[in-house]
Design a binder for these strands. Structure first.
Lengths: 126, 126
DNA sequence: CTGGATCCGCAGAGATACTG
DNA sequence: CAGTATCTCTGCGGATCCAG
Protein backbone atom coordinates (compact mmCIF):
# COMPACT_ATOMS: atom_id res chain seq x y z
CA UNK A 1 0.00 0.00 0.00
CA UNK A 2 1.16 3.47 -0.79
CA UNK A 3 1.95 5.94 1.88
CA UNK A 4 -1.34 7.67 1.33
CA UNK A 5 -2.83 5.17 3.71
CA UNK A 6 -1.19 6.23 6.89
CA UNK A 7 -3.10 4.88 9.78
CA UNK A 8 -2.66 6.92 12.87
CA UNK A 9 -6.15 6.14 13.97
CA UNK A 10 -4.84 3.33 16.10
CA UNK A 11 -2.58 5.89 17.67
CA UNK A 12 -4.95 8.71 18.26
CA UNK A 13 -7.83 6.58 19.42
CA UNK A 14 -8.26 4.36 22.43
CA UNK A 15 -6.73 1.34 20.74
CA UNK A 16 -3.16 2.45 21.13
CA UNK A 17 -1.86 3.31 24.56
CA UNK A 18 0.56 5.87 23.22
CA UNK A 19 -1.69 8.83 23.78
CA UNK A 20 -2.32 7.65 27.28
CA UNK A 21 1.33 7.50 28.16
CA UNK A 22 1.61 11.06 27.12
CA UNK A 23 -1.36 11.78 29.27
CA UNK A 24 0.64 10.53 32.22
CA UNK A 25 3.78 12.22 31.14
CA UNK A 26 2.23 15.37 29.82
CA UNK A 27 1.26 18.34 31.91
CA UNK A 28 3.80 20.70 33.27
CA UNK A 29 4.89 18.66 36.25
CA UNK A 30 4.61 14.89 35.89
CA UNK A 31 7.97 14.49 34.24
CA UNK A 32 9.69 16.58 36.84
CA UNK A 33 8.19 14.49 39.60
CA UNK A 34 9.18 11.28 37.89
CA UNK A 35 12.74 12.44 37.42
CA UNK A 36 12.99 13.75 40.95
CA UNK A 37 11.65 10.54 42.42
CA UNK A 38 13.93 8.45 40.24
CA UNK A 39 16.88 9.07 42.55
CA UNK A 40 15.20 7.14 45.32
CA UNK A 41 12.48 7.57 47.94
CA UNK A 42 11.53 11.21 48.19
CA UNK A 43 9.45 13.05 50.72
CA UNK A 44 6.67 15.45 49.90
CA UNK A 45 8.50 18.55 51.00
CA UNK A 46 11.63 17.53 49.18
CA UNK A 47 9.67 17.36 45.98
CA UNK A 48 8.05 20.67 46.71
CA UNK A 49 11.43 22.30 47.07
CA UNK A 50 13.12 20.48 44.23
CA UNK A 51 10.54 21.29 41.63
CA UNK A 52 10.72 25.04 41.61
CA UNK A 53 7.48 26.77 40.96
CA UNK A 54 5.09 23.94 41.66
CA UNK A 55 2.22 24.64 44.00
CA UNK A 56 1.22 22.30 46.79
CA UNK A 57 -2.07 21.63 45.16
CA UNK A 58 -0.53 20.63 41.86
CA UNK A 59 2.09 18.49 43.53
CA UNK A 60 -0.59 16.62 45.43
CA UNK A 61 -2.79 16.16 42.41
CA UNK A 62 0.02 14.91 40.20
CA UNK A 63 1.30 12.65 42.95
CA UNK A 64 -2.14 11.10 43.29
CA UNK A 65 -2.42 10.64 39.59
CA UNK A 66 0.94 8.95 39.29
CA UNK A 67 0.10 6.76 42.24
CA UNK A 68 -3.19 5.81 40.65
CA UNK A 69 -1.40 4.92 37.44
CA UNK A 70 0.84 2.56 39.36
CA UNK A 71 3.94 4.61 38.68
CA UNK A 72 4.49 5.79 42.22
CA UNK A 73 4.23 4.03 45.56
CA UNK A 74 3.19 6.13 48.51
CA UNK A 75 4.53 4.99 51.85
CA UNK A 76 3.21 6.56 55.03
CA UNK A 77 5.38 6.25 58.10
CA UNK A 78 3.18 6.45 61.21
CA UNK A 79 5.33 8.90 63.13
CA UNK A 80 5.10 12.49 64.26
CA UNK A 81 5.69 14.62 62.44
CA UNK A 82 4.18 12.74 59.51
CA UNK A 83 6.59 11.24 57.02
CA UNK A 84 5.51 10.14 53.58
CA UNK A 85 7.82 8.82 50.93
CA UNK A 86 7.27 8.35 47.24
CA UNK A 87 9.09 5.71 45.26
CA UNK A 88 9.04 4.79 41.59
CA UNK A 89 7.71 1.39 40.71
CA UNK A 90 9.74 -0.86 38.46
CA UNK A 91 7.44 0.05 35.61
CA UNK A 92 8.08 3.72 36.22
CA UNK A 93 11.80 3.19 36.32
CA UNK A 94 11.60 1.71 32.84
CA UNK A 95 9.60 4.72 31.74
CA UNK A 96 12.25 6.93 33.22
CA UNK A 97 14.83 5.17 31.07
CA UNK A 98 12.84 5.96 27.95
CA UNK A 99 12.47 9.51 29.13
CA UNK A 100 16.23 9.75 29.16
CA UNK A 101 16.14 9.41 25.40
CA UNK A 102 13.99 12.52 25.25
CA UNK A 103 16.10 14.53 27.64
CA UNK A 104 19.13 13.56 25.62
CA UNK A 105 17.47 14.75 22.45
CA UNK A 106 16.55 17.97 24.19
CA UNK A 107 20.11 18.61 25.24
CA UNK A 108 21.39 17.97 21.75
CA UNK A 109 18.86 20.10 19.93
CA UNK A 110 17.72 22.64 22.46
CA UNK A 111 19.66 25.51 20.95
CA UNK A 112 18.68 24.49 17.44
CA UNK A 113 15.02 24.64 18.36
CA UNK A 114 15.47 28.05 19.92
CA UNK A 115 17.21 29.26 16.79
CA UNK A 116 14.44 27.87 14.60
CA UNK A 117 11.86 29.70 16.64
CA UNK A 118 13.78 32.94 16.42
CA UNK A 119 14.15 32.56 12.67
CA UNK A 120 10.48 31.77 12.27
CA UNK A 121 9.46 34.79 14.29
CA UNK A 122 11.79 37.05 12.39
CA UNK A 123 10.30 35.91 9.14
CA UNK A 124 6.67 36.15 10.15
CA UNK A 125 6.25 39.01 12.59
CA UNK A 126 8.12 42.07 11.71
CA UNK B 1 26.23 14.03 49.62
CA UNK B 2 23.04 12.36 50.69
CA UNK B 3 20.11 12.09 48.40
CA UNK B 4 18.30 14.79 50.31
CA UNK B 5 19.83 17.26 47.97
CA UNK B 6 18.12 16.33 44.78
CA UNK B 7 18.34 19.16 42.34
CA UNK B 8 15.55 19.18 39.87
CA UNK B 9 15.61 22.91 39.70
CA UNK B 10 17.72 22.73 36.60
CA UNK B 11 15.02 20.57 35.14
CA UNK B 12 11.97 22.54 36.07
CA UNK B 13 13.42 25.91 35.24
CA UNK B 14 14.67 27.41 32.04
CA UNK B 15 18.14 25.94 32.37
CA UNK B 16 17.20 22.45 31.29
CA UNK B 17 15.48 21.95 27.96
CA UNK B 18 13.63 18.88 29.14
CA UNK B 19 10.47 20.68 30.07
CA UNK B 20 10.49 22.41 26.75
CA UNK B 21 10.68 19.21 24.79
CA UNK B 22 7.63 18.07 26.58
CA UNK B 23 6.06 21.36 25.69
CA UNK B 24 6.52 20.47 22.07
CA UNK B 25 5.54 16.89 22.53
CA UNK B 26 2.83 17.43 25.06
CA UNK B 27 -0.68 18.44 24.26
CA UNK B 28 -3.14 16.02 22.85
CA UNK B 29 -2.00 16.08 19.26
CA UNK B 30 1.65 16.91 18.66
CA UNK B 31 2.82 13.33 19.05
CA UNK B 32 0.20 12.04 16.69
CA UNK B 33 1.20 14.57 14.07
CA UNK B 34 4.85 13.73 14.47
CA UNK B 35 4.21 10.01 14.11
CA UNK B 36 1.91 10.51 11.15
CA UNK B 37 4.38 12.73 9.36
CA UNK B 38 7.22 10.33 10.09
CA UNK B 39 6.15 8.05 7.24
CA UNK B 40 6.97 10.72 4.68
CA UNK B 41 5.54 13.94 3.28
CA UNK B 42 1.92 14.29 4.31
CA UNK B 43 -0.77 16.63 3.15
CA UNK B 44 -3.01 18.63 5.41
CA UNK B 45 -6.14 16.66 4.67
CA UNK B 46 -4.35 13.38 5.08
CA UNK B 47 -3.36 14.39 8.57
CA UNK B 48 -6.85 15.55 9.29
CA UNK B 49 -8.23 12.18 8.35
CA UNK B 50 -5.49 10.12 9.93
CA UNK B 51 -5.67 11.71 13.31
CA UNK B 52 -9.20 10.90 14.31
CA UNK B 53 -10.92 13.49 16.37
CA UNK B 54 -8.66 16.44 15.69
CA UNK B 55 -10.27 19.66 14.62
CA UNK B 56 -9.01 21.78 11.78
CA UNK B 57 -8.13 24.56 14.09
CA UNK B 58 -6.01 22.39 16.35
CA UNK B 59 -4.29 20.72 13.44
CA UNK B 60 -3.34 24.09 12.02
CA UNK B 61 -2.16 25.43 15.35
CA UNK B 62 -0.05 22.39 16.14
CA UNK B 63 1.35 22.31 12.65
CA UNK B 64 2.42 25.94 13.00
CA UNK B 65 3.98 25.28 16.33
CA UNK B 66 5.95 22.30 15.11
CA UNK B 67 7.04 24.28 12.10
CA UNK B 68 8.16 27.12 14.30
CA UNK B 69 10.13 24.70 16.45
CA UNK B 70 11.97 23.51 13.37
CA UNK B 71 10.49 20.04 13.56
CA UNK B 72 8.35 20.27 10.49
CA UNK B 73 8.96 21.72 7.05
CA UNK B 74 5.99 23.17 5.26
CA UNK B 75 6.10 23.00 1.48
CA UNK B 76 3.54 24.87 -0.56
CA UNK B 77 3.00 23.74 -4.12
CA UNK B 78 1.67 26.66 -6.17
CA UNK B 79 -1.12 24.80 -7.87
CA UNK B 80 -4.87 24.78 -7.80
CA UNK B 81 -6.27 23.37 -5.72
CA UNK B 82 -3.62 24.24 -3.14
CA UNK B 83 -1.30 21.48 -2.10
CA UNK B 84 0.77 21.67 1.04
CA UNK B 85 3.05 18.98 2.34
CA UNK B 86 4.59 18.58 5.74
CA UNK B 87 7.85 16.75 6.27
CA UNK B 88 9.83 15.96 9.38
CA UNK B 89 13.23 17.55 9.71
CA UNK B 90 16.21 15.40 10.53
CA UNK B 91 16.02 16.66 14.08
CA UNK B 92 12.41 15.60 14.31
CA UNK B 93 13.20 12.19 12.96
CA UNK B 94 15.63 11.68 15.79
CA UNK B 95 12.95 12.79 18.21
CA UNK B 96 10.63 10.29 16.64
CA UNK B 97 13.16 7.58 17.38
CA UNK B 98 13.18 8.49 21.04
CA UNK B 99 9.42 8.57 21.00
CA UNK B 100 9.50 4.96 19.92
CA UNK B 101 10.91 4.13 23.32
CA UNK B 102 7.85 5.63 24.90
CA UNK B 103 5.39 3.89 22.63
CA UNK B 104 7.16 0.65 23.32
CA UNK B 105 6.85 1.20 27.04
CA UNK B 106 3.20 2.00 26.56
CA UNK B 107 2.57 -1.21 24.71
CA UNK B 108 4.32 -3.24 27.33
CA UNK B 109 2.67 -1.68 30.35
CA UNK B 110 -0.61 -0.33 29.06
CA UNK B 111 -2.70 -3.07 30.63
CA UNK B 112 -0.74 -2.89 33.87
CA UNK B 113 -1.48 0.79 34.17
CA UNK B 114 -5.15 0.21 33.52
CA UNK B 115 -5.20 -2.48 36.17
CA UNK B 116 -3.44 -0.21 38.64
CA UNK B 117 -6.03 2.49 38.06
CA UNK B 118 -8.87 0.05 38.54
CA UNK B 119 -7.32 -1.24 41.76
CA UNK B 120 -6.76 2.27 43.02
CA UNK B 121 -10.34 3.26 42.29
CA UNK B 122 -11.69 0.15 43.92
CA UNK B 123 -9.74 0.92 47.03
CA UNK B 124 -10.68 4.57 47.26
CA UNK B 125 -14.03 5.26 45.64
CA UNK B 126 -16.20 2.27 45.31
C1' DC C 1 -7.67 22.31 -0.48
C1' DT C 2 -5.64 24.90 3.20
C1' DG C 3 -6.16 27.58 6.12
C1' DG C 4 -7.60 32.21 9.21
C1' DA C 5 -10.98 34.52 12.64
C1' DT C 6 -14.20 34.37 16.30
C1' DC C 7 -16.95 32.73 20.14
C1' DC C 8 -17.26 29.87 24.01
C1' DG C 9 -16.95 26.10 27.50
C1' DC C 10 -14.13 23.45 30.38
C1' DA C 11 -10.15 21.56 32.67
C1' DG C 12 -5.55 22.87 34.38
C1' DA C 13 -3.21 25.45 37.29
C1' DG C 14 -2.07 29.44 40.79
C1' DA C 15 -2.97 31.70 45.41
C1' DT C 16 -4.41 31.34 49.82
C1' DA C 17 -6.11 29.53 54.06
C1' DC C 18 -7.14 25.69 56.99
C1' DT C 19 -6.27 20.80 59.30
C1' DG C 20 -4.68 16.06 61.31
C1' DC D 1 5.00 17.52 57.78
C1' DA D 2 1.63 16.49 54.47
C1' DG D 3 -1.99 17.38 52.80
C1' DT D 4 -7.32 19.42 51.86
C1' DA D 5 -10.64 23.15 50.50
C1' DT D 6 -12.06 27.11 47.70
C1' DC D 7 -11.88 30.58 44.51
C1' DT D 8 -10.32 32.36 40.49
C1' DC D 9 -7.98 33.00 36.11
C1' DT D 10 -5.96 31.47 31.97
C1' DG D 11 -5.45 28.92 27.87
C1' DC D 12 -6.56 24.67 25.38
C1' DG D 13 -9.51 22.89 22.46
C1' DG D 14 -14.18 22.39 19.94
C1' DA D 15 -17.60 24.46 16.70
C1' DT D 16 -18.61 27.40 13.23
C1' DC D 17 -18.08 30.63 9.60
C1' DC D 18 -15.17 32.98 6.24
C1' DA D 19 -11.35 33.32 2.52
C1' DG D 20 -7.41 32.75 -0.94
Amino acid sequence: MSRSHIDVSALASEACPVSEVLDHVSGKWSIGILVAAAQGPVRFTELERSIKGISRRMLTLKLRKLERDGLLVRTVHPVVPPKVEYTLTEMARELHESLLGLTDWAKRHGTTVAAAQAAYDREHNR
